[in-house]
């Protein structure tokens, strides 16, 4: 299974999103073609209701702990409840460009 499919499966099973986008943004970064290193996740779920941003991100980080530890380098994360997603017209911010500092040298 690709890293991307693994992320989609885990988030779907454990956070029950009403809307989920897992976008591989690795090609924007200084990594070989076909890499699965940089991802952006937009996840809309009422499991986030009543949780602040830190708790929401912690929840996703926990579900993706293995990926974050062993497989991926960056995860842009945008978490919304169904109402919040509706209120902002289903828009999540763009990720920043790479500036080259992927490794500590």
């Amino acid at each position: 299974m690709s890293v991307q499919a693994g992320i989609e499966e885990k988030l779907t099973q454990q956070i029950h999103p009403a809307h989920l986008e897992v976008i591989n943004e690795s090609s924007n970064h200084n990594v070989p073609p076909g890499s699965e290193s940089h991802f952006k996740v937009i996840i809309v779920s009422d499991e986030f209701k009543g949780k602040n941003l830190l708790s929401r991100h912690r929840l996703v980080n926990k579900v993706l702990a293995d990926e974050l530890q062993n497989k991926i380098h960056a995860l842009a994360l945008h978490t919304y409840t169904e109402q919040e997603w509706y209120d902002q017209n289903e828009y999540a911010p763009e990720s920043p460009p790479c500036l080259g500092g992927s490794k500590a040298q």
């Binding site: 941003l53 830190l54 991100h57 912690r58 980080n61 702990a65 974050l68 530890q69 960056a74 995860l75 842009a76 994360l77 945008h78 911010p93 920043p96």
Partner: peptide, 25 residues
């Protein structure tokens, strides 16, 4: 602070979050 990525912002000794949270706030 059991937070897997960089950057990390701390205010008053507490983790606020990473880039996405910082920008959203």
């Amino acid at each position: 602070a059991d937070w897997p990525t960089f950057p990390q912002l701390y205010v008053n000794g507490e983790l606020v979050g990473g880039c996405d949270i910082t920008l959203e706030l």
